[in-house]
Write a protein that binds this DNA or RNA. Structure first.
Lengths: 332, 332
DNA sequence: TTGTAGGCGTTATCAT
DNA sequence: ATGATAACGCCTACAA
């Protein structure tokens, strides 16, 4: 037996589908008698409204599309959690989909598959160029861009303020009196990595005094370890390391400890992201407050859907968290 | 201007919507000429098919609903990642929604909101009783139950094999020759915690020789710390601790270290879950392989949708991972 | 208060 | 190969 439709309910209640629809949607102009009959018909038939049909009729899905690149653990988890909090609070579902950067067009095909399925879109695609992204968007689908490369003119967006974070780390390290500083960079094509490296370089250079060495990395823990091992093997001297993310910073700490170098005392280490592990390891880092970013993104998108949003590009400010890897007195 | 529909394309190409639909869906019986005209009409109008309307017509959404309770970080992240991998591979979207255990009916209302929106459902709701859950499900919505309390007869499901995991830990600890064993249990109402405690108790009791003390906990790190501190304060002697999850085990390790007790040497410590932190801390634990559980769940649901699934309740086997917290020679 | 009928954007059947 | 047209399940003027 196929699921009951509103027509079945109407027949059973001896009423028209219009009346049933009105009753089901809580309109006032329905008699008590009708209401009763409908109620029991619904129960007897086990009727549940078909959300898809409803959406088509109302031109409203109550769903929000979330398109993210394939993400490393913590970030994915946190941003989705933040979005989910606001979404379920406001009665929206989250329709998840990841872009496959390796597929043709950078995976922009999924964007079209979302048309008529969601009311709006939260899109994060750091690997795709702005204009490609904007061209791939179905016309008329309200979209908020998160951390894309550059800011497509006129598109509302939220960008992580990488520069502010890197600058805070630089100033902290310099305030500690460190002079020979190493930066373990992230993947070459990654916009976040680029912004962090650039802002860090500038802040260090501004003092004139300190020396900065930048070595490559790929955001994975092993690359942080490798970077430090290479430097030590070469006899390179340094008293501070800023890794472009926490994973690499943790790898760097392991390598230093293994080499018998005291972290914080001889070499201060800092990362970026503030993943849970950072707290346990006492790693000084920049807290991105990812969940808050997710919350904010959803809130703004809902604003856009409601026709109230200034469409500007917003900067999400991170926060420096000092722990024992740079300051022995900082606990943890 | 509102987005173009298939009708606009038909008009522009001087063809009927039927022909356009056929062309768009790659049918053979469409002339080259028609194909060309449609192609350019689509491009000129920026036409993108309306997935919602398509779903209604086809009675197929290509979306799978995922309903989870509010979850602590790692688990949520991992299980969704696993599901997402398979889903995007098979051309499905994931429609996310969390149940609010505190709302009336345990949050079962969202289940109805999913009808007509998804082709199938992946449902994890350890806080709701079986029969309530099954009653709340829209009729005819293929559903796979994950780690629910008990197995509603006749419903396909996947359950974590807590008993096998706890048994493996018990045998490992006994093999180490430990005789005075402590179990830090999870929350009283939690089914996973109950199963772990019970299986562990049984396995220990089976030997007859060892002594087991069970103390309460709540899955949070602090409760593991507190439990150990209490035992030490009471002068209780023990040489092994099995916590019902990794968070508590890590708390226990901290407390032991702080008290100057050598972990593994004097007291062996083991946990459950194998969160990333466990690896870093060298904690012996039971790896749940959450992402794999998610993958498997989605695969089975797709099997159900395809009419091929034996509908049985499947046990997801965890795996003992021995590290330095019980075996000094085990690295990490 | 209730019913009739048309529409939301597609697909599919049945002619031609 | 192409075109009318009736679904799909629901909502909503407009009428009565």
């Amino acid at each position: 037996m196929t699921p009951a439709t509103i027509r079945d309910v109407a027949r059973r209640a001896q009423l028209s589908v219009a009346t049933v629809s009105r009753a089901l949607n809580g309109f006032e102009n329905v008699s008590e008698d009708a209401r009763e009959r409908i109620k029991s018909a619904v129960k007897e038939l086990g009727y549940v409204p078909h959300a898809g049909a409803r959406s088509l009729s109302l031109a409203r899905t109550n769903a929000i599309g979330v398109v993210l690149p394939a993400l490393h653990g913590e970030f994915f988890s946190e941003i989705v959690r933040g979005m989910d909090r606001v979404a379920s609070d406001r009665g929206y579902f989250l329709l998840l989909s990841n872009m496959h950067p390796e597929s043709p067009g950078g995976g922009t095909a999924v964007l079209r598959a979302l048309r008529g399925r969601v009311d709006g879109l939260l899109l994060m695609a750091p690997h795709v160029e702005d204009h490609e992204l904007v061209e791939a968007l179905p016309a008329g689908l309200p979209t908020l861009l998160i951390n894309t490369r550059g800011q497509p003119a006129g598109w509302p967006g939220i960008h992580l303020d990488n520069a502010a974070g890197a600058k805070a780390v630089a100033e902290h390290i310099l305030a500690l009196g460190r002079q020979r500083i190493v930066h373990i960079a992230g993947p070459a094509g990654n916009i976040d990595a680029q912004e962090r490296a650039e802002a860090f370089r500038k802040s260090i250079a501004a003092t004139g005094a300190a020396e900065l060495t930048t070595v490559p990395g790929d955001f994975l823990e092993e690359s942080g370890e490798r970077a430090v091992n290479d430097l030590l093997a070469k006899g390179k001297e340094f008293d501070a390391v800023f890794a472009a993310n926490d994973n690499m910073a943790i790898g760097a700490m392991s390598a230093l400890r293994r080499a018998g170098v005291s972290v914080s005392d001889e070499v201060a280490v800092a990362g970026f992201d503030d993943i849970p592990l950072a707290n346990h390891m006492g790693l000084t880092t920049v807290s991105v407050r990812i969940a808050e970013l997710g919350e904010r993104a959803l809130e703004r998108l809902i604003g856009i859907l409601g026709g109230r949003d200034d469409g500007r590009d917003e900067l999400h400010a991170p926060e420096l968290v000092v722990r024992s890897s740079t300051d022995p007195g900082a606990g943890a």
